Simulated scan of single mutants.
Amino acid sequence: MTPTRRWAGLAYVAPLVVFLAALFLVPLVELFRLSFSPVDTYNAALPGFTLNQYKRVFTEPYFYGSLLETLATALLVATLCVVLAYPAAYVLARRSAGAMRTLLFVIVISPLLTSVVVRTYGWVVLLSGNGVVNRLLVATGLRDQPARLLTSYPSVVIAVTHVLLPFAIIPLTTALGGLDHNLHRASQTLGAGPVRTFLRVTVPLSLPGVVTGALIVFALAMGIYITPLLVGGVTQPLAGIRVYDQVETVFNYPVAAALSFALLALTLLSTTLLAGAFRIWERRLHG
């Protein structure tokens, strides 16, 4: 590549770099600086440097407990999304191009075309005391009175799984759609049945899609807070809600910044470990 073309390429990406630096890196650096600021008795940030905010995050159960709860919830949601996404992705991948495949794909991505607040309020309507679910429970005699579905942890997991499910279906569909069907025919010719072919051929070859979908969902679930907040309420012990509470209720911005960076570090560490574990699994499957 000539120097002229190299500089031309840099000129093309320069606006994007400046845009990301201005709207992402600069606020991130400022938030990181804020996390080391001391506070007065009214939780207002003061000039100076202190580790007290991080000490609180890692020593008070209210904060570090929310980090552990968030990690467990993200792992659960990622697992549920992959399990639920695989059949849908398998059907989409095996469908030939046509109106039905297009319709199915539109249904899959339709949640992404709607505001997350609108989708979440849909769950609020369904799970409320006089919502559809409770009316069905009472009408069928399964309960004498409406159940308290909102503000519960299972409701939060269900709603978050619904919101993030398309992010698992799309990479899985891509991975399954790229498989060579001759491998399935060869497996069956050698005497393997449909189940064994699926477990020994389809699953190992679709593992990149599984890994991609699981990591995307996991990373998004670690930082999600709007859906848990609207469905489960501010009492849910998730780190994103704890950050929201520190900003909107306690007005302790340094602690909120410290908790945010602790959550970011935990997300990066967990994602790295999961990616490594998936890579080891993939090597074992492929010998």
Rank of each mutant, 00 (worst) to 15 (best):
N252H: 13
P254V: 10
I107F: 10
T174Y: 02
I107R: 00
T79Y: 05
S206E: 04
V17G: 03
P3K: 08
N252T: 02
G65C: 09
V211Q: 05
L230G: 08
F167N: 05
S115M: 08
V243D: 02
V211S: 06
G177K: 07
V138T: 15
A256I: 11
L84I: 11
V138E: 12
R185S: 14
L176I: 10
V210M: 14
A275K: 09
A97M: 01
A72K: 14
L80S: 07
L80M: 14
T267F: 02
Y225S: 00
P254M: 09
L28D: 00
T173K: 00
A265N: 05
V255D: 06
L259C: 10
L136F: 11
K55F: 11
G209M: 07
L34W: 01
P166I: 00
S206T: 06
T73E: 01
D245L: 06
T59V: 10
P228N: 09
L263Q: 06
I169V: 15
T189N: 15
S152N: 04
L10Q: 11
L68D: 04
V124A: 02
G98Q: 12
L165P: 03
S270L: 09
L205V: 12
V26F: 10
P208K: 10
L205H: 07
L23H: 03
H181S: 14
V124T: 06
A139S: 13
T189D: 15
E248M: 15
R200G: 07
V247F: 01
A257S: 15
T59P: 05
F198C: 08
T197Y: 01
P166A: 00
V116W: 02
G48L: 10
V117R: 07
Y253W: 14
L23N: 03
L137W: 01
L238Y: 07
N252P: 02
V195G: 00
W7E: 00
S115G: 13
P111V: 10
L190F: 15
L176K: 01
R242H: 10
P38R: 04
V201R: 06
V211Y: 00
V106C: 03
A88L: 15
V118T: 13
I170V: 15
A168E: 06
A11D: 03
L230K: 07
A139R: 12
V138I: 14
L113Q: 11
F24S: 10
V231D: 07
G141K: 12
F36C: 03
R95A: 13
S206F: 02
Y86H: 05
L199P: 01
V57K: 06
P15A: 09
W123C: 03
A78N: 05
L172P: 04
L51N: 01
L80D: 11
S152M: 04
V160Q: 07
L23D: 01
P154L: 13
S66N: 13
L76Q: 06
G98A: 12
V157P: 06
F105P: 00
V77I: 15
L51M: 14
A99P: 07
H184C: 01
V26M: 09
Y86Q: 00
F198V: 11
M1E: 08
T41A: 15
P194C: 03
Y121F: 15
